[in-house]
Amino acid sequence: MAAGGDHGSPDSYRSPLASRYASPEMCFVFSDRYKFRTWRQLWLWLAEAEQTLGLPITDEQIQEMKSNLENIDFKMAAEEEKRLRHDVMAHVHTFGHCCPKAAGIIHLGATSCYVGDNTDLIILRNALDLLLPKLARVISRLADFAKERASLPTLGFTHFQPAQLTTVGKRCCLWIQDLCMDLQNLKRVRDDLRFRGVKGTTGTQASFLQLFEGDDHKVEQLDKMVTEKAGFKRAFIITGQTYTRKVDIEVLSVLASLGASVHKICTDIRLLANLKEMEEPFEKQQIGSSAMPYKRNPMRSERCCSLARHLMTLVMDPLQTASVQWFERTLDDSANRRICLAEAFLTADTILNTLQNISEGLVVYPKVIERRIRQELPFMATENIIMAMVKAGGSRQDCHEKIRVLSQQAASVVKQEGGDNDLIERIQVDAYFSPIHSQLDHLLDPSSFTGRASQQVQRFLEEEVYPLLKPYESVMKVKAELCL
């Protein structure tokens, strides 16, 4: 049975990233139509530049190519590739079939990587351009969430054990800070992308030097003109047959890092959902379990974690691919890159769409948070109580021993009897502590235990987050809708 299948058929496997999760716009960027249309555009740009620099290419040939950029006979191309065992030459023939007058000058002087690699770089750039505003929107939604809850005390956790208090907004800023680093890295790697350009079979530009009869300047002009037509500021000066596969490492490393950030955020949300302090959106008709109707599973956060793990592992592909590119190139890269580049971007696209949807509907339960604080705060307040007693004339050592005994009794009630923490009640009825009984409410005010959390939130948002989001103001209103 021949390899390949009808990918629109229910009898043929289709990647869930495309069929179930990723956005239509990201799927289109990695589609065959987008790819092969870009090949034709690159052939047109090459012909236009070659004509401008004096090669015998007519206006009629150029116009014929322009008129057929979208006229792609995919069936013919597939048949040609089956016959020739070469995808680029299959599309040269297919393009030439609908451009008979231009057929002889299509791909003039070029090698397969002229269309293959340059198209990949265009796709990487455009895919990054799709991700950047999506990530900015996630940051914006979380920034709104953090600002609104900047002063809401909550129990902090280290080692997932109760620690000092923080605020809900401050905790959210930990998430935002990681995503801001990801946004900066995505922008950097996007701006650092260079075009492969017009380089020939081993990167020496020998074929173009021959076409222009040894004119170095025209060869350099050709490279520059096509690079500018493709919208790049610069091209690699040095290439082998391909652009260095280190570029793929750079791009997928940034995406993998984004995956790590999203995994951490969504894990926190899942843990908070278990504590009943916070939940992701839950639709009115949504079913959490087929057997347990009360369940409210954090399905979206779980999906993000599941896909983020996949995204983090994909960076190993370009690392290994770059390491086995012998001399000017081997074909070890080809099949692998067809999979890992598309999957990385479709996965990143999915987790950003999902995280935006989550961040637009996060639900906080202040009463649950308050109750958990009441359970733990008495123990945390013991040092403040000791200091207040010393100020009232008591002995630190005597007070410490009193607190120690009462704390152990209260802990026994919590752990052995399943009761509430009654340390404060014990202190309130103990005559030894009568000098500070009137101060206990103040000493137990949760806001006095959150330090500068709310001020940190305000400063972080104003100095770091809002300036970073400013270039994306025009796209901030787009909502994230999930079908599944």
Rank of each mutant, 00 (worst) to 15 (best):
W326T: 06
L108K: 03
E462A: 15
S395H: 12
L53G: 08
T111C: 01
M387H: 13
A308M: 12
R188W: 01
C266L: 04
F36N: 00
T267I: 03
G104D: 10
H86I: 07
F345N: 13
I62K: 08
V363C: 15
C180T: 06
E81R: 08
D192Y: 09
S207D: 01
P471A: 10
K147L: 04
T52M: 05
C113K: 03
S257N: 11
G109S: 06
R303F: 07
K35H: 15
G361D: 04
S151V: 02
I403S: 04
P446G: 01
V390W: 15
T321K: 01
N126R: 01
N384K: 10
H437F: 05
T167C: 06
G197C: 02
L461P: 00
K276M: 04
I139C: 00
C305D: 11
L174V: 04
A381V: 14
W45Q: 08
L275G: 07
H86L: 04
T354P: 09
D120Y: 00
F30S: 04
L132Y: 08
L469P: 10
V226N: 01
L132R: 08
L222F: 02
D333F: 09
S301M: 15
R194S: 05
D120R: 04
S454T: 06
Q161W: 02
W43C: 11
S112F: 09
L69S: 05
D59M: 03
Q325K: 06
A150D: 00
W39L: 14
V475K: 08
E148V: 10
F208P: 13
Q164D: 01
I249Q: 12
N71L: 09
K284P: 15
K75D: 03
H310P: 04
P471I: 15
Q63A: 01
N384I: 08
P16C: 00
R83L: 08
S151L: 01
L42H: 01
A348K: 01
T227K: 02
K229R: 06
E213N: 07
S323P: 09
I427N: 01
Q205M: 09
T382M: 15
Y466R: 09
D120Q: 00
S23P: 06
A102R: 06
R85M: 12
K101L: 08
D117P: 05
P446Q: 00
S395M: 11
M316P: 03
P318L: 01
R337P: 07
T313D: 11
L222N: 07
L311Y: 01
Q286M: 09
L311R: 11
E70W: 05
F379H: 15
A90K: 13
G288D: 13
A388L: 11
I105G: 06
M26G: 09
D32C: 06
C305F: 02
C340M: 13
L252Y: 07
Q161T: 08
G203W: 05
A411L: 14
G8N: 14
M292G: 10
Q408G: 05
I249N: 12
L482C: 00
M299H: 08
T239W: 10
T330M: 02
M389A: 00
P298I: 15
R404S: 05
L222Q: 15
P293Q: 11
M26D: 14
K35Q: 09
L331S: 01
I385W: 08
Q325M: 11
Y21P: 06
G109F: 13
H107S: 02
I249K: 15
E81I: 09
N71W: 07
Y365A: 14
L209I: 11
L211P: 03
A235T: 11
E213Q: 13
A127Y: 14
L461F: 03
M299G: 10
Q439S: 11
L255G: 01
A431G: 15
E360S: 00
Y365Q: 09
M312R: 09
E25V: 12
Q456Y: 14
A381P: 15
N274L: 06
E60W: 12
A47V: 08
R371L: 09
V324W: 05
A256K: 09
L152W: 04
E360L: 07
S474W: 15
A335C: 03
R85W: 12
S207G: 06
R337W: 00
D178S: 05
D191G: 08
D445G: 03
E80L: 10
H7G: 14
K470Y: 08
E302P: 05
H263D: 00
I358M: 14
N353G: 07
Y243R: 10
E401F: 00
S290I: 02
L484G: 09
I105S: 04
P471Y: 04
Y114L: 13
H437A: 09
F379Y: 08
H86C: 04
D333W: 15
H437T: 15
V115W: 01
Q205A: 08
K402S: 04
L355R: 00
Q320H: 11
D420H: 04
V475D: 01
F36V: 11
E360Y: 05
I339M: 10
P446A: 01
Q397D: 01
F232S: 01
G231F: 03
C340T: 00
T244R: 10
T450D: 08
A110Q: 02
G96K: 05
R374G: 09
A22V: 11
W45N: 01
V219A: 09
I106C: 01
P446K: 07
C305K: 01
H159Y: 01
Q63N: 13
N68Y: 11
Q221L: 02
R245D: 06
R85Q: 01
C173A: 03
T94G: 07
I139M: 09
T94P: 13
H159D: 00
F195N: 02
L346Y: 02
V478T: 00
H217T: 11
M76Q: 12
V324H: 00
L44S: 13
H442V: 12
S67C: 07
A163D: 03
D422V: 02
M76E: 03
L484F: 14
M476R: 12
E464W: 15
T244N: 01
T450I: 02
L132G: 06
S289R: 09
R171W: 00
I351K: 03
L275C: 06
L152N: 10
P366G: 13
N68W: 10
L155K: 03
G288R: 10
T239D: 01
L258H: 15
T52R: 04
G394R: 00
E328M: 03
Q409T: 05
I373C: 15
L440A: 08
A322K: 10
D192N: 06
I123Y: 00
I386Q: 05
I424C: 10
Q241R: 05
V414T: 07
A392G: 01
T382P: 04
